[in-house]
Design a protein around this nucleic acid. Structure first.
Length: 1015
RNA sequence: GCUCAAGUGGCGGAAUUGGUAGACGCGCUGGAUUCAAAAUCCAGUUCUUUCGGGAGUGUGGGUUCGAUUCCCACCUUGAGUACCA
C-alpha cells in the first residue's frame, strides 16, 4: 500500500480537532509544562515557510513533553492590533477589524495544515474587546501604583496619599520625576485636588508628561526619528518641527535594577541577555555638584570617573540645558544663541550620526572646582546629550577622548593627572593601567581606591555622592493611531481620570476615516461618540460635553506592545472568564512559561516590556511570578533564494551631453526625460542574462542589436531632440545607461535557474510589466541571477507552506524545516532538498506496510534490532533536550535504513520507534500506531526507556594513528588491557610498514578509544 | 568604534570532558529496472597523487602523544548597538 500522506494528514488533523486531543486541563495530577510561541501578527500576505520554523520546534517539544508524562499547555493566538491593517484601512476604507478577521482565517487555515498540537480553545486576539478590557485594566493598575524604593516594589498609590496627608513627602523614598520639591502634610492637605493630582502624576507608574516629538504639520502626524532626513520628512520633503506633546509614558526606569538582576535567574541566551543589559545600560559612578561662580546656580553632572576630578579643565552643557540662558554672559550671548539655533535644527539622531565635527561655544561663565576652587570654563557642546544623565559633563580631557578632542579644538588646557602616561597624542582611558597623580589627596592611588576616596571627600563637602545611572528611559505609551487599545481615560479640567473597572472595556469608536483630523488630532478625534458620561458611566456623543458630567475621552491609543505584554497569562485561563484576566487557580497552576520560542528582533521591545509588566503585576499581588519566560530560544531566520532578471536601461548618447546640462532649463529637461522614457518603452522591456553582467557596456550593446539602433530611428530621434533642446545634431544614439536587477517571483524559475518566460508574462500579480518583455536567451533559455536574502513578499522569494504540504505533506515539511540546520541559526531554504526527508517517510512507511498488509509481527527482536532502537532512543532524547532537532532527523534516517537492512518486523522495536518519531512527524506516526492496533492517540504514549545494556560491545575498532594521524584501524576485544593492545599493534604488519624500521619514541594507548604511535 | 555570534566538500550541515574530520541529506557521476519517463534500487562522490601515499576544518603562531574542539594575534561575514560622560 502506498504512503498516501494527503489522506492520512487530513484524517488525523480532523481527528485531533474533533476529539480535542490537545486541550490542556487546568486540573491534572501530572506535572505541568507550558510551551509558548510568540504569537503572530496576522498580515495579509499569509504564512511563508519561514514562519512555522519556531512553531514546529515548539510543537516537537510540546509533543515530547506529553510523551514524557507532562500536562502540557501549548496555546496559540494573534497579536491583532497593528499598523498594516490600519494603513490598508486608510487606503481602502475597509475597517481594520474586517481585514484582521480575514487575515486570521487565512493564518488559521495555513497553520491547521501543518498539524500543530495547539489548544485552540484558549486562543486570544489582542484586538478583541473581551481581551483588551484587561489590557486597559492593567493600564489602570499601573496608574494606581507608585514605586517604593525602601521596599523595592510597586505599591498602591493610596498608600502614598495617606503618607502625604500625614507626613508630607519628606520622609518617603519613592521613584519620582522631580524629587527636589518638598512639602509638608499641612501643605499637602491645603492643596487643591488638581494640584494634588499633578503631584501624584510624578509618582504614578504610568503618567502623562510633555514629551518632545517630531511633528510634521503638512502630514499632520508625528514622525519617528528614522522617517526624517536632513530635517524634512522622508516622504514629501515637508518640514518637521520638534514639538512638545502630552503623552502617556510608562515608568519602566523604576524597574531598571530589577530587570537587570532578573536576567541572572532566567535561562536565555547570553547574547539576548547582553542586549537587555546594554539597553538598561547601568553605569556606576558619582554625581558631582559644581557651583557656578557669581551665581547661585549649581550644575550637577554624572561621572563614572570621580577619580579624575582633578583633571577637570572645563565643563560642557548640552545646548538644551536649562542653565544655559541663566549663566551666559552678555558678551557671549549672541554667539551662544547662534550656536543653539544651529544645533536645534539638527535632530538628536543627526547629531549622533555626525561624530567627527567638533562644535561648541563658550558661555563666558565659570564654575568652581569643588576641591581646588579654581575657575572652570563652562562651554556648550552638542556632543553632550540632553537626554542622558543630567545633560552636563565635567570634562576631563586627559582621560576621555571626546573631551580631549574638544579641548584640542578650542585650545583648552589638558592637565595630566596620570602617573607616567603620555597624553600628547590622545587621551588615556585605560583606567587600570596607571595611578593618579597631581591630584592632592588622590595621588598614588589606583582607579578603585581613588574613586572611593573622591566620593567620600565630595560627600564631606556636600557636593556629590555615589550614584548609579541607567540608560533605560521611560517608554512613551501613546500612539496617534486608530487600530490599538483605547485608553480607559477621560479628562476633567485637563486632568486624567480612570474609568472604573466594571465599565470596561472601553470599545474603539467608529470613525469615518482612519486619518488624523485636520487640526492634527489622532484618528479618534474624528469619532462623534467619544465622550464619557460620569452619571450613566457610558460612552456618549461628543456634542454632549458639558464639563460637569460629560467629559472628553483620551484620543490616543496604546502601542503594539501593550497587548503582547501579558497575553501569556490569558492563555492559562481555561474558561476565559469575564471577571478576571486569569483566575487565581489558573495562575497558581501554570505559573509562567517554561519554554518560549520566537524571534530575536523582540530582544529589547516585547521581552523587556513583558518582564516589566509581570513585575508590576507581581508587586501588586495579581500574579505569583517575577519573570514571564523561564527559558527562551530564538529561532533563526529562514532565508529565501531570490531570483533576478536584469533590465537594461537606456539613455540618449549624443555629442552635446555636456551642452545639454549647461543650457537646459527644467521644462526642457523634463521633456528630455519623457523622450528617453518613450524610447525605452518602444524598445520594450529588454532583459539580458546574468552572464552579460561581466561584459562591458559597448559589448552588450553590440550583442543586443535591437531594431531601435537602426538608422531610421536615429533620424527621427535627432529631430525630436532638436525640438526639445534647440540644438541640431544629425546623429543620436541610444546607449546602455545601467542594468537594473529586478526581483521576480521564484515560482517561475526551475531548479536549473531557468525562467518560465510565458508564465511570468501572464502573471497578474506583478509590480513590473513583463507583457512586452524581451528576454535575451542563451542556448534557448533565460537563466536568472540568484541571491540569498531574507524571505519576504517584497523580495518575491517566498515559498508557501501550503504548496509544500500539498506536494509532500505536512510531515515532510516539519521534518525538513528541522533538518535544515540548527534551530537558532539563519539558514537558506531550498525546496529541492525536501525529497530527502520525503523519501525517508516513504521508507519508514514501507518498513511497516508491505504490498499485502502489515509487515509487523510479534517476532522476537534481534540483538541488532535492539541496538538500533536503543541507540536511537538515546540520541533522540538527548537531541530534543538540547533543541538539536536537525540531528534527530538524521538519527531517524539512520535507524530506518538500519532496520530496513535488518529486515526488522518486530513490533517490540517498531512500535516504540513510532513514539520517537511522533513529535516530528505526528500524522504518519498516528496512522501507523493505529494500524498496529491502537485506538487511542499516540500523543500520550509513554516515551520509550533507554536501556544501555543493548549498546554494550565486545570489541572495538581501534584507530591506529602515527603522530596523531589515523592510518588504519584494528578490531580488538573491548576487555584487552593496555599492554596487550600495545603488543598486538606493534606486531601488526601495517605498523611495521608505517615505521619503516624507525624505533617509536612513545606509544600512547587509551583503552576503548585510540592508539597513537609517536615516531 | 564597541558588543555578540559564526567561518568545515559543489550546497545545507555533522563531529564537546581534546581521540577515526566530512555523519545525514541535497546535488552530481555511473549502473539496474522501464518502450520511455516518473518512482525505486545499487555503487561512487574533500582535494591531490607516480595509486605506495600525501595534504586538509578562514590565516599565522602556541599548548599537547594527539586540536574543527583549548590559548594568543589577525582576516572575513552576519547581527545588535552607538558621542552613555
Amino acid at each position: 500500500m502506498k504512503y498516501d500522506f494527503n489522506d492520512i494528514e487530513k484524517k488525523w488533523q480532523d481527528h485531533w480537532a474533533k476529539n480535542q486531543t490537545f486541550k490542556a486541563s487546568n486540573a491534572s495530577d501530572k506535572p505541568k509544562y507550558y510551551v509558548l510561541d510568540m504569537f503572530p501578527y496576522p498580515s495579509g500576505a499569509g504564512l511563508h515557510v519561514g514562519h512555522p520554523l519556531g512553531y514546529i520546534a515548539s510543537d516537537i517539544y510540546a509533543r515530547y513533553k506529553r510523551h514524557k508524562g507532562f500536562n502540557v499547555l501549548h496555546p496559540q493566538g494573534y497579536d491583532s492590533f497593528g499598523l498594516p491593517a490600519e494603513q490598508y484601512a486608510i487606503q481602502t476604507g475597509q475597517h481594520p477589524a474586517l481585514t484582521t478577521e480575514t487575515n486570521i482565517a487565512t493564518y488559521r487555515r495555513q497553520l491547521d495544515k501543518i498539524g500543530f498540537s495547539f489548544d485552540w480553545s484558549r486562543e486570544v486576539r489582542t484586538s478583541n474587546p473581551e481581551y483588551y478590557k484587561w489590557t486597559q485594566w492593567i493600564f489602570i493598575q499601573l496608574y494606581e501604583s507608585y514605586y517604593c524604593n525602601d521596599d523595592n516594589k510597586a505599591k498602591d498609590i493610596k498608600e502614598l496619599t495617606s503618607i502625604f496627608s500625614a507626613e508630607g513627602n519628606t520622609t518617603i523614598n519613592a521613584v519620582c520625576d522631580d524629587d527636589t520639591s518638598s512639602f509638608s502634610a499641612e501643605e499637602w492637605n491645603a492643596m487643591s485636588s488638581e494640584a494634588q493630582q499633578r503631584i501624584l502624576l510624578q509618582y504614578r507608574l504610568t503618567y502623562l508628561a510633555e514629551t518632545e516629538v517630531n511633528w510634521c504639520p503638512a502630514l499632520g502626524t508625528v514622525l519617528a526619528n528614522d522617517e526624517i532626513v536632513n530635517g524634512v520628512s522622508e516622504r514629501g520633503g515637508h518640514p518637521v518641527i520638534r514639538k512638545k506633546m502630552t503623552q502617556w509614558s510608562m515608568r519602566i526606569s523604576a524597574y531598571a535594577e530589577r530587570l537587570l538582576q532578573g536576567l541572572d535567574t532566567i535561562d536565555w541566551t547570553d547574547s539576548l541577555k547582553e542586549s537587555q543589559r546594554n539597553w538598561i545600560g547601568k553605569s556606576v559612578g558619582a554625581s558631582v555638584t559644581f557651583n557656578v561662580k557669581d551665581h547661585d546656580a549649581t550644575i550637577d553632572v554624572f561621572t563614572t570617573r570621580p577619580d579624575t576630578i582633578f583633571g577637570v579643565s572645563f565643563m560642557t552643557l548640552a545646548p538644551e540645558h536649562e542653565l544655559v540662558d541663566k549663566i551666559t554672559t552678555p558678551e557671549q550671548k549672541e554667539a551662544v544663541e547662534t550656536y543653539i539655533e544651529k544645533t536645534a535644527k539638527r535632530s538628536e539622531r543627526d547629531r549622533m550620526a555626525d561624530v567627527k565635527t567638533i562644535s561648541g561655544v563658550f558661555t563666558g561663565a565659570y564654575a568652581e572646582h569643588p576641591f581646588t576652587k579654581e575657575p572652570i570654563q563652562i562651554w556648550i557642546g552638542d556632543y553632550v546629550l540632553a537626554s542622558y544623565g543630567t545633560g552636563a559633563v565635567m570634562a576631563v580631557p586627559c582621560g576621555d577622548q571626546r573631551d580631549y578632542d574638544f579641548a584640542r579644538h578650542f585650545d583648552i588646557a589638558i592637565p595630566n593627572i596620570f602617573d607616567g602616561v603620555d597624553i600628547s597624542e590622545e587621551a588615556f582611558a585605560d583606567k587600570d593601567k596607571t595611578v593618579i597623580a597631581n591630584s592632592d589627596f588622590l595621588n598614588g592611588m589606583n582607579y578603585k581606591k581613588a574613586t572611593k576616596r573622591a566620593i567620600y571627600e565630595l560627600e564631606q563637602l556636600g557636593q556629590g555622592e555615589g550614584k548609579t545611572n541607567y540608560r533605560l528611559r521611560d517608554a512613551v505609551f501613546s500612539r496617534q493611531r486608530y487600530w490599538g487599545e483605547p485608553f480607559p481615560v477621560y479628562y476633567v479640567n485637563g486632568m486624567p481620570q480612570m474609568i472604573e473597572t466594571e465599565h470596561l472595556p472601553i470599545r474603539l469608536p467608529e470613525v469615518e476615516k482612519y486619518l488624523p483630523t485636520e487640526t492634527g488630532e489622532p484618528p479618534l478625534g474624528r469619532a462623534d461618540v467619544w465622550a464619557w458620561c460620569t452619571e450613566s458611566n457610558t460612552v456618549v456623543s461628543n456634542d454632549k460635553i458639558d464639563n460637569e458630567t460629560v467629559h472628553p475621552l483620551e484620543l490616543n491609543t496604546m502601542p503594539g506592545w501593550a497587548g503582547s505584554s501579558w497575553y501569556f497569562f490569558r492563555y492559562m485561563e481555561d474558561a476565559m472568564r469575564e471577571e478576571t484576566f486569569a483566575s487565581k487557580g489558573a495562575l497558581d497552576y501554570w505559573e509562567n512559561v517554561d519554554l518560549y520560542i520566537g524571534g530575536s528582533e523582540h530582544a529589547t521591545g516585547h521581552l523587556l516590556y513583558s518582564r516589566f509588566w509581570v513585575k508590576l503585576l507581581k508587586d501588586r499581588g495579581f500574579v505569583n511570578v517575577e519573570e514571564p519566560f523561564k527559558k527562551l530560544i530564538n529561532q533563526g531566520m529562514i532565508l529565501g533564494t531570490s531570483a533576478f532578471v536584469y533590465k537594461v536601461r537606456f539613455s540618449i548618447d549624443s555629442a552635446f551631453d555636456s551642452e545639454l546640462y549647461k543650457n537646459i532649463n527644467s521644462d526642457s529637461l523634463k521633456r528630455f526625460y519623457e523622450f528617453e522614457n518613450e524610447l525605452t518603452r518602444r524598445l520594450g522591456n529588454l532583459f539580458i542574462p546574468k552572464a552579460y553582467l561581466n561584459k562591458k557596456n559597448n559589448e552588450i550593446e553590440n550583442l543586443l542589436n535591437v531594431s531601435l539602433f537602426k538608422k531610421e530611428y536615429v533620424t527621427e530621434w535627432s529631430n525630436r531632440l532638436s525640438e526639445i533642446i534647440g540644438i541640431n545634431e544629425d546623429r543620436v544614439y541610444l546607449k546602455l545607461q545601467y542594468i537594473d536587477p529586478i526581483h521576480i517571483k521564484v515560482d517561475y524559475v526551475n531548479a536549473s535557474d531557468e525562467l518560465d518566460i510565458e508564465g511570468l508574462k501572464e502573471d497578474k500579480e506583478f509590480g513590473q510589466d513583463f507583457k512586452n518583455a524581451k528576454f535575451i536567451l542563451e542556448e534557448g533559455v533565460y537563466k536568472v541571477g540568484r541571491e540569498i536574502e531574507k524571505m519576504s513578499k517584497s523580495k518575491k522569494n517566498v515559498v508557501n507552506p501550503d504548496a509544500i504540504c500539498e506536494q509532500y505533506g505536512a510531515d515532510s515539511l516539519r521534518l525538513y524545516e528541522m533538518f535544515l540546520g540548527p534551530l537558532e541559526q539563519a539558514k537558506p531554504w531550498n525546496t529541492a532538498g525536501i525529497t530527502g526527508v520525503h523519501g525517508f517517510l516513504k521508507k519508514l512507511w514501507k518498513l511497516y506496510v508491505g504490498e499485502n498488509g502489515l509487515n509487523v509481527n510479534d517476532a522476537e527482536p534481534t540483538k541488532d534490532n535492539l541496538k538500533t532502537l536503543h541507540k536511537t532512543i538515546k540520541k533522540v532524547e538527548e537531541d530534543i533536550e538540547n533543541f538539536s532537532f536537525n540531528t534527530s532527523v538524521s538519527t531517524f534516517m539512520i535507524a530506518v535504513n538500519e532496520l530496513t537492512a535488518q529486515k526488522c518486523t518486530s513490533k517490540a522495536v517498531l512500535e516504540p520507534l513510532l513514539t520517537l518519531i511522533s513529535p516530528y512527524a505526528p500524522h504518519i506516526a498516528e496512522e501507523l500506531y493505529n494500524r498496529l492496533g491502537h485506538n487511542e492517540s499516540i500523543s500520550t504514549a509513554a516515551f520509550p526507556t533507554f536501556d544501555a545494556s543493548h549498546l554494550v560491545e565486545s570489541s572495538k575498532n581501534y584507530p591506529i594513528s602515527f603522530n596523531g594521524k589515523m592510518r588504519f584501524t584494528l578490531e580488538l576485544p573491548m576487555d584487552m588491557n593496555k599492554e596487550d593492545i600495545e603488543k598486538t599493534v606493534m606486531a601488526h604488519e601495517k605498523t611495521i610498514a608505517q615505521l619503516d624500521g624507525r624505533e617509536p619514541k612513545k606509544v600512547i594507548v587509551v583503552p576503548g578509544k585510540i592508539v597513537n604511535i609517536v615516531g
